[in-house]
Every structure is written in C-alpha cells, then in structure tokens.
C-alpha cells in the first residue's frame, strides 16, 4: 500500500515509448506519465521513428496511436508481433486511439495489442492499463494464425484442459 499522495516507487524504472503523429497528444501522455512518476519517456511521431527507438532502447511498454501516416499503428503492432522481424515481440502494447467501436477493439486484439484505451482518455484509465500490464500480464501464445498476448483474460485462472489444438504458451 502506498502512502496517500505518493507514487509507486518502482514506476520511475519503467521506460515507455509513445508513438503518435500528434505532438500535443504525445505531450499530454508524457505529462500524465510524469504525474505517475514515469520520466523515462521516449517519443516518436511515426512508425519508422518508433522502430528506431525500439531497436536502440530497452523499452518496457509501448503506447501507440492507430491512425498514422504513412504507416499506421496497427501495422506497427503486427510488425512487433512478428518474431522474425521484431526487436521485441513480447513488448506490452497499449493502443491509444480515437476508435471506440467493438470491431476495432477486436481488430487490435487480433493484431496483438495488449491493452486498448480510447481517446480522449482519463489519467485513471491510463494508470489502470499500466496496472493490468504489471500486475496481470497476459501470457503469450503462438498458434498457426496468431502470435501475441492471450486474448482471453479470465477473472480467475482457467483450470481446464487447453482447447486450442495448436497452442504453445511462451511465458
């Protein structure tokens, strides 16, 4: 339990990359992360710059916009979840986007996003996603058609047999 007013001590150890083509939004996310005690924040305005950061730095969490040019955030997620291409296939990814439709959430999950947060976002929402990533990390699975964090998050651990006939847990 942390003292009222304090930030969790270890958050300052996290290194977070934010990729969004809107500089103001990157600044807002950085400010909110700073209020949580996270100061190691790397910014990228496009996917190419994000990949350079991810190749050069040991990033713990990526916060990624979806609608960007020339390459969109969903393509970045797919690249990062490609074990042959990715510098960090197991990286937790928060998709921070103005898309709010359930079909978009599903599309993002199917691409390998770890958490989904809709813009405009509240600070509490962002903290909650970080909390999920740290406290209840999704195990990674590899099937014939999917590599990424398990898309099923159960309230209690599933105790039955594995029903995917081609699943291989990775973590």
């Amino acid at each position: 339990m942390i003292a009222n007013g304090a930030t969790p001590d270890g958050l300052d150890k996290l290194r977070i990359a934010v990729v969004d083509d809107n500089a103001a939004m990157r600044g807002i996310v950085r400010s909110v992360l700073g209020a949580f005690g996270i100061t190691q924040v790397y910014e990228a305005a496009d996917v190419e710059a994000a990949l350079q950061i991810l190749r050069a730095e040991k990033i713990d969490v990526l916060i990624c916009d979806w609608k960007m040019k020339p390459v969109d955030g969903l393509s970045l997620v797919r690249t990062l979840r490609d074990p042959e291409e990715s510098p960090c296939p197991l990286l937790p990814i928060i998709m921070l986007t103005a898309y709010a439709e359930p079909s978009k959430v599903k599309e993002a999950r199917d691409a390998g996003v770890t958490e989904f947060l809709v813009k405009p976002f509240a600070a509490e929402g962002l903290y909650g996603r970080l909390q999920m990533i740290v406290n209840r990390p999704r195990p990674f699975v590899r099937t014939k058609v999917f590599f990424g964090p398990d898309r099923r998050r159960l309230a209690s651990g599933y105790q039955g047999p594995e029903r995917r006939d081609d699943a291989a847990p990775l973590s």
Partner: peptide
C-alpha cells in the same frame, strides 16, 4: 517481468496521484 522491475504489484490509483495528473494536464 515488469512486476519485479517495479518492485511488486502496482497499487490502486490514489486520489492525490490522479489530482497530480489532472494538474499536469492543467498546466497545458
């Protein structure tokens, strides 16, 4: 594991931290 890196499970958000976040946005 990020939990080990940050020294344990993250606690629930506290009001002061959220107020600090709102203030940070307020600065902008």
């Amino acid at each position: 594991m990020l939990k080990a890196k940050v020294g344990g499970a993250l606690p629930a958000a506290n009001e002061a931290m959220m107020q600090r976040a709102e203030a940070a946005i307020g600065d902008l």
